[in-house]
Design a protein around this nucleic acid. Structure first.
Lengths: 187, 187
DNA sequence: CAGGAATAGTCATATCATTGAGTACCCTTC
DNA sequence: GAAGGGTACTCAATGATATGACTATTCCTG
């Protein structure tokens, strides 16, 4: 019952089609929720049947037609109800951490390789978040933007995503270096 | 297919029953994987049938009997194979972030309350991780421990958990203070 | 001695998520 | 003109996860 609220939260920013949502959920919004296109199309169908979003057909000539969705007042009420009930902390489930947990009893080489690769990915995401943050705040300073803008939600979740990826990067680099120093790997 | 590897990784540290595992997965090991008892019992059954762990019955008189499990050589090989294939970054799915994403269009009061509550929970987890880290490294310094111990996996995942919760706490506090300043809430 | 917490599990179900395949059309590039 | 990529979406099957209820015994507290 939570993907539905993530979809509603994203649709607050404007009309989107399932296809557009899929792109958002795959990259930018991956800082607070992730979903594959099939999930989104299914959820949009359910949300529309429940009256929480409204869709309108857009006829296109140079490409397939699409349906754009907006949040209805009932959808906004649903979001408000969602925000009013206490939420549980999400559970962490990260394969790479499982590998590190077991690394003392395994060949460290592939784990080190994955840590170094992950550090690069995390660094790229930090830069992506930085670009998104700059774009969201325009030419205002962060402080001014956060004090005066009337749409700071996406900025705040983006800040969290940036911090997470920065920590991820530093931890991966440190652990990779440490494991390398302990058991020198050829090459 | 990943809970199984988390269970194997934890069983590297010693013999545990399903019940003990459930406690570990509920608190300490929540830094890299979370699971409820029912999942663990089911997974232990599957792992034993697959020959990846071996269980032995322990008769107890003052409480119900239990079954303790250890990783078999086949289980260790399974872990090694798991560590050898590249893993995908885990997807973030956090209700509280969804609420913050939508906060501009909602009553901020319950969101602020949840942020403040979450900051307290995160602070408590930081302290829990600090205690675990101290216990794991004994009277060695972190540097010495990480250089010389032959079991650093749990320490490293614990370090990651600590960083995550620390960031979480700081972000929650900052966002709560910001939202309070923007829309003063009575009380 | 009643009530509650701790130990040690099991069963059933419903929802959620993941994966793979498939349709259809347009545009651009080689 | 064939191949590849982007847009837009659907279907089906399987696997993972969450939730609630249930059994049994022992220990401790009031």
């Amino acid at each position: 019952m939570a993907l539905r609220h993530a979809v509603l939260a994203v649709l607050l920013d404007g009309e989107y089609s399932g296809y557009q949502l899929a792109k958002i959920f795959d990259v930018s919004c991956s800082n607070f929720w992730y979903a594959v296109p099939q999930q989104l199309y299914a959820e949009l169908t359910k949300l529309e049947r429940a009256g929480l979003i409204a869709g309108r057909q857009v006829i296109q000539h140079d490409r397939p037609n699409k349906r754009l969705f907006t949040v209805t007042p009932a959808g906004l009420a649903e979001l408000a109800a969602f925000a009013a009930v206490p939420s549980k902390p999400s559970s962490i489930r990260e394969d790479l951490l499982v590998m590190v947990q077991a690394v003392d009893r395994l060949d460290p080489a592939p784990v080190i390789a994955q840590l170094e690769e992950r550090a690069v990915i995390a660094a790229a995401k930090v830069e992506l978040f930085d670009r998104m943050l700059r774009q969201l705040r325009g030419d205002l300073t962060e402080e001014t933007f956060l004090r005066e803008s009337d749409r700071i939600g996406p900025y705040l979740t983006c800040l969290r995503g940036r911090r997470f990826e920065q920590e991820n990067r530093e931890w991966c680099e440190r652990v990779a270096a440490l494991l390398r120093a302990r058991a020198p790997v050829p090459g």
